[in-house]
Design a protein around this nucleic acid. Structure first.
Length: 714
DNA sequence: TGAGGAACATAC
DNA sequence: GTATGTTCCTCA
């Protein structure tokens, strides 16, 4: 395979490659790592065109490169050490400070080099990303089309509204609910977008070279690089390209069929792989074989006019083609398991190079301007294949950032600043430190809540425009490494009467992203009451190709919020902020709180002082109880300390030390305290010493000064 | 639907 | 054997 003819690294003078727009502007932060990243970065920048989803395939081109992973520190051959060692993100920001991430609206591939040849087909999610009425985005997208190429996004997403129709119900737990099975839920985008390594050309050396490779999903080039899933390729995608279809189908239908250790078959499901007959098994492509197509239409029908009918047909063809060959060489067990996870198939169709110049005009991607397209899609296309319920938007959603095509937006594992220039994205209300995530086999456990009741809220400060924006939310890691999408958790869209915030799901490189409107009338503030957390089985994720993280004990997450602010220059400013860590496992939440450190071993004997306790398993509603017992064990007093909730953070409590209550004690006064979670969980008592401030010890008794006495109520 | 709890399964 | 993960039961 030819290697990528990207701009030389010299284009990125500030260490990590900085974003470069078509005009040569140096943009935002550099990607987190090198290696496969390199190509991705370059691709990303050099090709970053909202309207064009380039799909360079570093992996396929360089099979030897390490599979995408999470190790952001990993560098790869050929990549400057700096690129790999520096934290992603702040490298080359220009306008808004070092940390801002800008995207130019006009990035066309600088050298006009053709996209990297690659034997993969990927249908990337794009659907529903173009709905907006945000002219800002609109313009950007138009401008972003490669000059002369008029090339539409090379990838698209097809949402499957009702995955159940394609899955064996018997495989689902009775306890399951549609909403809980994120992968299969109405949030069809997840389904259609969620791709597994096996289906990801970039990680599938065995993929058929017959696929026309012209574009690459920059997203995939990043550490996680599993590829944006979704469906639909550009209208140019040759129906002959294909073969990914089967993969997708299999992964999709194979859900739960072969979970190695899953009790799915042992307990209730009683489903065997045989039962799940993938449409692709049929030698003959059939409408049924491409349910994903309809999937894409799901909630985005109203907005998905970006696709031309030809594109859709191409996608269908691709999907309906048996691509089993691509799975050859992949252990059935692993394959199925992994695929199982992502019922939805995300195919990325890579248009042939020649397509670049023949791609339909950008206008195709502007639904508002081409209502006829919608008609064609819904009626002529979707209806013919799948009965897809119309899913009108509930809100005049601004064009989703993803509508630009991920190539133009920073990858989810890029580190972005929370503020830049006049803008600041801030979490006004933090989520509770514990939220039990639900499995696909369970019903939803509801939305993440705030400690003091209510829900987390996020606000964009400094934005004075009247155009609404979209707030993106995904589940990120909470370990010591750089923030990145969490492999074992996905955000779960909550809907229902109790949810006041509308939202939409999108998939970016295997990560589900919830998109929430940020409206000027709400002061660009969003109350996030629509986000739950879905736990994916460790066994499923760990079998993913390229996955390096392990799920065991990896149960802490953060809510990551992003907003992309169009700039007058046409570029995009991206901000990001992550919440405090959230413990998602049931067991951890039940563990005893443990005080590891306290701010002072000795504290004033009188009240009014505060003490900081840090440890584990503290809850926002944890209580700190002070106890004093006489040497003979006699309980002298016990009282709950007042908490300074404003200063409390996860696993860090700030308490006000209660006033001294008993004068008949010896000095130094030994007092114990424990942290109590709920009714039963309490830490071991931990001692500290009161110093006789404002008092003195005489004859084994505390003698308080009049002032101290008054303060203590004595 | 949203939780809480716990039984059962698996990893270490 | 213990710790942790996953599924199921139950209830408000």
């Amino acid at each position: 395979m030819p290697s990528t003819s990207f701009p030389a690294p010299s284009k990125f003078p500030l260490g990590p490659p900085a974003a470069v727009c078509g005009s040569g502007e140096t943009l935002g932060p550099a990607p987190p790592s090198g290696g496969t990243m390199k190509s991705a970065e370059e691709e990303h920048y050099s090709y970053a065109s909202p309207g064009v989803r380039s799909t360079l395939l570093p992996s396929s081109a360089q099979p030897s490169l390490p599979a995408p992973g999470h190790d952001l520190q990993t560098s790869a051959p050929g990549v400057p050490a700096t690129a790999a060692s520096q934290p992603p993100g702040y490298g080359g920001a220009v306008d808004s400070g070092p940390s801002s991430y800008f995207l130019s609206s006009g990035h066309a591939r600088p050298n006009g080099a053709p996209a990297l040849e690659s034997p993969r087909i990927e249908i990337t999610s794009y659907m529903g990303l173009h709905h907006g009425n945000n002219q800002f985005f609109h313009d950007v997208e138009v401008d972003d089309v490669l000059p002369g190429s008029k090339r539409p996004p090379s990838t698209a997403t097809l949402n499957l509204p009702n995955l159940e129709a394609y899955r064996d119900p018997s495989c689902l737990s009775p306890a399951s609910s549609l909403s809980s099975r994120s992968c299969n839920s109405e949030a069809s985008s997840y389904e259609s977008n969620f791709s597994y390594p096996y289906a990801s050309p970039q990680t599938s050396p065995w993929q058929s070279p017959c696929v026309s490779p012209k574009t690459t999903d920059p997203e995939e080039g990043f550490p996680r690089g599993l590829g944006v899933c979704g469906l639909l390729g550009s209208p140019r995608h040759s129906p002959s390209t294909s073969p990914r279809t089967s993969v997708t189908e299999e992964s999709w239908l194979g859900t739960r069929t072969s979970r190695p250790s899953s009790p799915c078959n042992k307990r209730k499901y009683g489903l065997n792989g045989q039962q799940l007959t993938s449409p692709h098994h049929s030698p003959t492509p059939s409408p049924r074989g491409s349910p994903r197509v309809s999937v894409t239409d799901d909630t985005w029908l109203g907005n998905s006019t970006q696709y031309t009918s030809s594109a859709i047909v191409a996608a269908i063809n691709a999907l309906s083609t048996d691509g089993s060959l691509e799975l050859d060489g992949v252990p059935v067990k692993a394959r199925k398991t992994a695929l199982d996870h992502c019922p939805s198939v995300a195919l990325k169709v890579e248009p042939a190079g020649e397509d670049l110049g023949t791609t339909p005009p950008t206008a195709e991607f502007l639904p508002e301007e081409f209502p006829s397209f919608q008609h064609v899609r819904k009626g002529a296309f979707c209806d013919q294949y799948l009965s897809v319920p119309q899913h009108p938007y509930q809100w005049a959603r601004p064009r989703s950032p993803t509508a630009y095509g991920s190539p133009t937006l920073p990858a989810l594992d890029w580190q972005l600043p929370s503020r830049s220039g006049p803008y600041e994205l801030r979490i006004e209300v933090q989520p509770k430190p514990h939220h039990r995530a639900h499995y696909e086999t369970e019903g939803s456990r509801g939305a993440v809540k705030a400690s003091a009741g209510g829900h987390p809220s996020v606000q964009l400060h400094g934005y004075l425009e009247n155009e609404p924006l979209t707030l993106q939310l995904f589940i990120g890691t909470a370990d010591d490494r750089l923030l990145r999408p969490h492999a074992f958790y996905q955000v779960h869209r909550i809907t229902g009467k109790t949810v006041s915030t509308t939202s939409h799901e999108a998939i970016l490189s295997n990560t589900k992203v919830l998109e929430i409107p940020l409206l000027p009338e709400n002061n660009m503030r969003a109350i996030v009451d629509c986000a739950g957390i879905l736990k994916l089985r460790n066994s499923d994720i760990e079998l993913r190709k390229g996955e390096t993280d392990i799920g065991r004990k990896n149960t802490r997450v953060r809510l990551v919020f992003r907003v992309h602010i169009p700039q007058p220059s046409g570029r995009m400013l991206s901000l990001q902020v992550a919440s405090n860590p959230i413990e998602c496992s049931q067991r951890s939440a039940q563990e005893l709180p443990l005080v590891e450190k306290q701010s002072a071993a000795s504290c004033p004997v009188l009240g009014g002082k505060k003490m900081v306790l840090s440890g584990h398993n503290f809850l926002q509603d944890s209580k700190v109880i002070f106890v004093e017992k006489a040497p003979d064990g006699h309980h002298i007093w016990e009282m709950e300390a007042k908490m300074d909730r404003e200063l409390c953070q996860p696993n860090s409590l700030v308490v006000e030390i209660p006033p001294f209550r008993n004068q008949r004690i010896t000095s130094p006064v030994q007092v114990s305290f424990y942290v109590c979670n709920g009714k039963r969980k309490r830490s071991q008592c931990q001692r500290f010493t009161y110093l006789p401030a404002n008092g003195a010890v005489r004859n084994n008794r505390m003698v308080l000064s009049p002032k101290a006495r008054a303060r203590c109520g004595h």
